[in-house]
């Protein structure tokens, strides 16, 4: 198993703060700009990077991430190019963990074994595949663990205590707690319930728990980071890219729009535990 993920959580814990997990869509708005965004994320304060694999039919995503995936596909993004982005990133950063996030079909069509060995060789640390629940572990989860890649599972408000062990079994790297029943980019309605859920999950596992869905600002990051080991931000980053475009194309301000947002979120996670 790759060691970048546990090393990074240990580093954040030693600094008494949650990790900032930043999601960016591979190939959005074009390959070169996406590469520049990816490479600028660690400097802006991202501790862990989720790199989105665009898919034509992202059933669990709201309009922000959907549009980012559409832009990437329109610009010609493919799985091969996404893996090449990681490979290029690794030439200058061998410490920041990268988790590929997306849906199963593009992986299935690439070929599970071919995908796993290419991802491992490129320097990927883990996978989050939204439409593969534990019931389908034989498809990708078990082969991924065998290949030395972490398989990070989503736990949700509907995952009760009876089901939680099944969800945590075969999960590695960290647990991604989805803060609400809903799609990415919606708003968290009950912050207290999220904290309780994180505490409940931590009663079942020693893995770090990251909270995602609905975190948009530095204040959200500070608030949600109080009880968790990390917070994940995706839609806000996709929307920052969108806001920087002119006629659908990247501008001189595109990378800065993302790094400014991420730097703000980073300040949020740094005061999360102090605010407790």
């Amino acid at each position: 198993m790759t060691t970048r993920i546990p090393a990074r959580f240990a580093l954040c814990a030693s600094q008494n703060r949650p990790a900032l997990v930043a999601y960016t869509m591979a190939g959005d708005p074009d390959l070169a700009t996406a590469q520049a965004i990816l490479e600028a994320l660690p400097g802006a304060g991202a501790d862990i990077i989720e790199l989105g694999m665009p898919f034509s039919d992202p059933m669990a995503d709201g309009p922000g991430v959907q549009a980012a995936g559409q832009r990437a596909l329109a610009a010609g993004q493919t799985m091969k190019k996404t893996l090449a982005m990681v490979e290029a990133f690794r030439k200058q950063d061998d410490e920041t963990p990268i988790v590929l996030m997306g849906y199963y079909n593009p992986i299935y069509i690439f070929g599970v074994d071919a995908f796993l060995s290419a991802a491992k060789a490129a320097g990927v640390d883990g996978l989050i595949v939204v439409d593969l629940p534990p019931e389908e572990d034989a498809e990708l989860c078990i082969p991924a663990l065998r290949a030395g890649l972490n398989f990070i599972r989503l736990a949700t408000p509907t995952t009760d205590d009876a089901r939680l062990p099944a969800v945590l079994n075969n999960t590695s790297g960290f647990v991604y707690y989805v803060s609400m029943t809903g799609i990415t980019g919606a708003s968290i309605k009950n912050h207290a319930a999220v904290g309780e859920a994180v505490t409940r999950i931590k009663g079942h596992t020693d893995l770090p728990v990251v909270v995602g869905f609905g975190i948009k600002t530095a204040d959200d990051a500070a608030r949600m980071g109080r009880d968790s080991d990390g917070i994940a931000v995706g839609t806000a980053i996709c929307n920052a890219v969108l806001g920087s475009l002119e006629n659908g194309k990247a501008t001189a301000g595109t990378v800065a729009a993302v790094t400014t947002l991420v730097a703000g979120l980073s300040s949020g996670v740094k005061r999360a535990k102090a605010a407790a």
Partner: peptide, 12 residues
């Protein structure tokens, strides 16, 4: 066939 859905829907 199978059950290729997000965890949120799985219990349901």
């Amino acid at each position: 066939g199978g059950r290729f859905v997000a965890e949120t829907l799985m219990p349901l």
